[in-house]
Amino acid sequence: MEFSTFLIQLLNGVQYGLLLFLVSSGLTLVFGIMGIINIAHGSFYMVGAYLAWSLTGAIGNFWLALPAGIVISVLIGMLLEWLVIRWLYHRDHLYQVLLTYGLILVVEELRSVLWGDDVRGVDIPKILSASIPLTENQSYPVYRLWISAVCLLVAGLMYWVIQKTRLGMMIRAGASNREMVQSLGINIQVVYRVVFAAGLTLAALAGMIAAPVSAVFPGMGNHVLIVCFVVVVIGGMGSVKGALIASLLIGLVDTFGKVVTLAIGGFKVLPELSSMTVYVLMAAILLWRPEGLFGKRL
């Protein structure tokens, strides 16, 4: 493989991994702090993408659509927490899974009602539409670099929150334990609402910034959700650090898995088969450490 090709694939892998981290960190945070498993998480990735599309269309500017979309996502998150999620705190995981599965159907159908069932696209904003030439006929789009940068920025922000704030103190303590948190003098109801909204917004934000490079289509959150599950199983549920490392691992394995199978195979079927590599990775981790790389041993 030529170096420039390798570099492009490396950047692609890292960008995909970082985007995965954005989505999966929301999933793992909500579980780590609230003890809630939200399998509708992927649907909000889709909601984010549709928000980017409809708001960019309505406002006419991606840079204004982005903050508007974030505000809407936060509001949706708080509303959902108030409406349904808060009844789940003391319930078995089974009911959390069922209820949020119901939410998937509701969100998917509301999407159909509001935005229709067509595949949509969002234009890459003008300032970022350039490409950096690497060789005579290879170049790398600036927008993808920007995606990685945004993800890194959010990761840095999360690091700061987790290390430096009182909310972070709880996250580090792995506090899904109400009494302990309340003894710190924190209003748990407010914290949970904020955390749920933040988790949901992370997924939506990922959908928004990914929209210009991936198409916007019904059910686009499903695949992302499953890969996030793989990330969380590998990284360890509730661990943000684990989510980061596992996301990058999967981003790279997936990207290079495709390149390698293409190089050695040439079969028409194989490129799709190569997406199985991440599941093979998960299976290996399950044998070695069923609780994930950074999970607590049960």
Binding site: H223, I226, V233, M237, E272, L273, S275, G292
Partner: peptide, 30 residues
Amino acid sequence: FVVRTHGIYFIMVTLAFAQMLFFLFHDTKI
């Protein structure tokens, strides 16, 4: 692979393996 996990992991891992098969048949010509 999955039976060695517990609780929430079991839920996620069973779903992940099933979706793996789903995508296998959905995305390929099989």
